[in-house]
C-alpha cells in the first residue's frame, strides 16, 4: 500500500509540475495584458530547444539560464506584434495563432526535425530512493525552478511598484490609464515577463522531456485545461488547478486508463457548467 501511495504521489507530482510549467507564463500574461497567447507553446518549446543546444556547450544549469536570458528579447517583440495586429481579443487570437504556425516553420528551419532534450545531462544529477521508488533529482530541481518563478511573480505583483501598476491594469485598465499609468509600458514588461517565465519553464522541462516539431500546439491542451479550471489569470488558481488536473489524470491512469484524456475534459466541462469563471477566480470573467 505504501508502495502504491508513493508511486501515485510521484506521478501526481511530476504531471503537476508539467502542467504548472506550461500554464504559469500564460496565466501571468493573460492576467495583466488580457492577451490570450496561443503561441505560448512556441516560447515553451523555444526555451527547451535553446536549453538543449546551450547545455551541451556550457553545462546544464548555465544552459537553462542562458536559454531563459536569450528569450528575454522576444517579450517586447511579442507585445508589439500582437498590439500591431490585433485590437480585439478575436484578432489577438488570430495573431498569436499565426505566430504559433510561423514559430513551427522557423523551428523546422533552425533546429531541423530532431529530438532536443537535456535528459542525458540531467541523468547525471542522479536520483533519490523513496520507499523503493527512484525519484530523479531533475524533477526536484524542476520543482525548485517552478517555486522560484512563482515566488518571483508573487513578490513582483504584491511587493513592488511595478506590480502595483500591473494589478491596477489587470483590474481596470481604463481607470489605471486615467490615473497616469502607462498601460503600454506595463503591457510590454508583463508580456516580456510572461514569455521569460514560459521559456524558463520550457528550458527546465528539457530535463525530462524531448522537444520536437509539432509540440507547440500539443501542450496547449493541458495549459488551457489548467487555465479554465483555475480561473484565467490567477496565479494561485493555476497552481491549484494544475494539482486538480494532475490528480484526476493520475487516478484515471491507475484505475481506468482508457479515461485518461476524457477525465481531464470532464473536469473542464464540470467547472465550466458550475463555476464558469473558474474555481479560484477572484473576479467574474469579463465579457
Amino acid at each position: 500500500m505504501a508502495g502504491f501511495a508513493i508511486s501515485f504521489l510521484i506521478s501526481f507530482y511530476v504531471f503537476f509540475l508539467n502542467i504548472l510549467m506550461t500554464s504559469l507564463g500564460m496565466a501571468f500574461t493573460y492576467g495583466v495584458t488580457r492577451i490570450l497567447n496561443l503561441a505560448q507553446g512556441t516560447f515553451f518549446v523555444l526555451g527547451g530547444y535553446l536549453a538543449s543546444v546551450f547545455a551541451w556547450q556550457i553545462g546544464l544549469a548555465f544552459g537553462i539560464a542562458a536559454a531563459t536570458a536569450a528569450s528575454l528579447a522576444f517579450g517586447p517583440l511579442f507585445y508589439l506584434y500582437v498590439k500591431a495586429l490585433g485590437r480585439t481579443e478575436l484578432e489577438q487570437l488570430f495573431a498569436t495563432y499565426a505566430l504559433l504556425l510561423i514559430g513551427e516553420g522557423l523551428f523546422k528551419l533552425v533546429f531541423g526535425n530532431g529530438n532536443y532534450t537535456t535528459a542525458s545531462l540531467a541523468d547525471g544529477l542522479g536520483s533519490v530512493e523513496v520507499l523503493g521508488q527512484q525519484v530523479p533529482y531533475s524533477y526536484l530541481w524542476g520543482g525548485a525552478v517552478a517555486a522560484a518563478l512563482l515566488a518571483l511573480m508573487y513578490l513582483l505583483l504584491a511587493r513592488t511598484r511595478a506590480g502595483l501598476y500591473m494589478r491596477a491594469v489587470r483590474d481596470d485598465a481604463e481607470m489605471a490609464s486615467a490615473l497616469g499609468i502607462n498601460i503600454r509600458e506595463v503591457g510590454l514588461s508583463a508580456s516580456a515577463l510572461g514569455i521569460l517565465i514560459t521559456a524558463a519553464s520550457g528550458a527546465a522541462s528539457s530535463m525530462w522531456q524531448a522537444f520536437t516539431l509539432g509540440l507547440s500546439g500539443q501542450i496547449l491542451v493541458y495549459a488551457f485545461a489548467s487555465l479554465v479550471v483555475g480561473g484565467v489569470g490567477d496565479l494561485l488558481g493555476v497552481v491549484a488547478s494544475s494539482a486538480v488536473i494532475s490528480a484526476v489524470r493520475t487516478a484515471a491512469v491507475f484505475l481506468y486508463p482508457q479515461l485518461e484524456l476524457v477525465a481531464i475534459y470532464l473536469v473542464v466541462i464540470a467547472v465550466l457548467l458550475t463555476r464558469p469563471s473558474g474555481l479560484f477566480a477572484r473576479h467574474a470573467r469579463l465579457a
Partner: peptide
C-alpha cells in the same frame, strides 16, 4: 495501457508499470 500521441509526460504510466 494506451496514451495519446505526443504525450510529453509518462510518469503515471511508468508508476503503473512499476506497480
Amino acid at each position: 495501457l494506451f496514451t495519446p500521441l505526443f504525450t510529453s509526460d509518462y510518469s503515471a504510466q511508468i508508476s503503473k508499470i512499476l506497480d
